[in-house]
Design a protein around this nucleic acid. Structure first.
Lengths: 227, 227
DNA sequence: TTCATACTTCGACGGTAGCCGAAGCATCTG
DNA sequence: CAGATGCTTCGGCTACCGTCGAAGTATGAA
């Protein structure tokens, strides 16, 4: 009965621990194979396969065949944002899977959120870009200014390929650890790729943490000052 | 295993149809008794009671004893926002509980979102307030300007009681039908109460729809012009 | 073609969670 | 106090969903 969106369906999909683990693993932004996701979830391949088809039916993940592998990824950036929002909510209610472990501080400092930088550093970056006038906000929407285009060109970001897709260049994404916004969208993605390409930071293999090198950290802080 | 927030717990809580119905009913913003929620969910009182204690354990709803009644409400505005976000996501994937029925257009036009106005009219109101310079946005945060304080005083909104609580005066909330932001926070709440008090609009008994009277509608449109 | 790898489908099992009837508290009314 | 109302707790039933072993399909390698 009742009208309106079926939130129970989404809840059920996210509510199973194995599926939640898979989705969390996919928040890393990389496409993963069914086997990898089975490991991440701690279930057998058959079980994982069943979960993945449910997630696909629900449009939470998408699938890409490549040779004899099947790569799964989050369906889109909106899915990542929703998961991040739920994480923030869960954290605010103290629903943690474990007591905050040693890796937790690293996650709070810098982590990957689907395909862009999140955590303290992610929030700082957006704050800095807004202070400098590179980006301005109108409601929820973030817009790249004319001056901003020049700023980015100086840094060496090519904006051409960023505006080609339907996805917005700038988008705000709520950060679960900081409870403030960081930068998503194609620009957020491009900036993170840049940091990784330059060797300023590395993603860790077993978690979503992004670890900056000492040199990379000072470069980053210099590039995105505050005040 | 794994670190981080337990999204599966939130998912499970929202994932049961009976609980989802209760939460949707509570999105109306009114506190409801266990009996009313049992009806809304289509289960017996015993079952509802069990669901409600789970929701309370999970900090999704809060309880208030009053005489021999127990009133339940969403735990806070953040809970309402999360549910609205999930509704938007579900709708975007076409996960609807029913084909859009006759009440659907009314819901899209104006409805209550926890305690403030949502839908086409809610979005219009925030747009208008921002065009007029009453409210400006900084990232996700909305701020009331000095000029805005005067604007509101003219309309007859008393800002004193709004700033007393810890809850922000202005907050943006993502609208699932419009996919844009509308105004939440204590000001959003106060404005809606105002419309209801003035008799411009009435809430319907059986859904979240807000129905404007003919006179109220023109008052509203005049008060919040666009362009 | 034959074998290996990656994954899906089928079938059966088991645990859990939702469900309700009945009984037990708590609170208001008379 | 007795009776009514609102809600919770208990106990038992049932159905569903997650789980895995085994078998089946698809792709690539030898």
């Amino acid at each position: 009965m009742k009208e309106g969106p079926d939130i129970a369906r989404i809840g059920t999909l996210i509510g199973d621990p194995a599926r939640a683990n898979m989705l969390t693993a996919l928040m890393g932004g990389q496409a993963l194979t069914a086997t990898e996701l089975a490991q991440a979830a701690g279930v057998t391949l058959q079980t994982a396969s069943s979960h993945l088809s449910k997630l696909e039916d629900g449009s939470l993940v998408s699938q890409r065949k490549q040779g004899r592998h099947r790569y799964f990824a989050l369906a889109d950036a909106a899915t990542g944002s929703l998961l991040e929002a739920i994480m923030g909510f869960a954290a605010s209610r103290g629903h943690l899977r474990h007591r905050p472990g040693p890796r937790d501080p690293a996650l709070r400092k810098a982590r990957i959120c689907y395909d862009h930088l999140a955590g303290d550093y992610g929030v700082r970056m957006l704050d800095s870009l807004m202070q400098r006038g590179t980006i301005v906000s109108e409601g929820d929407d973030l817009t790249l200014t004319e001056k901003g285009r020049l700023d980015l060109r100086e840094i060496g970001i090519d904006l051409e390929p960023l505006s080609s897709s339907r996805r917005p260049i700038c988008k705000s994404c709520l950060d679960w650890s900081e409870r403030r916004s960081h930068l998503a969208g194609t620009l957020g993605k491009a900036l993170l790729s840049r940091f990784l390409d330059e060797g300023w930071a590395r993603r860790s293999d077993d978690s979503r943490a992004i670890r900056f090198t000492k040199a990379g950290e000072s470069q980053f802080l210099a590039l995105f000052p505050l005040e």
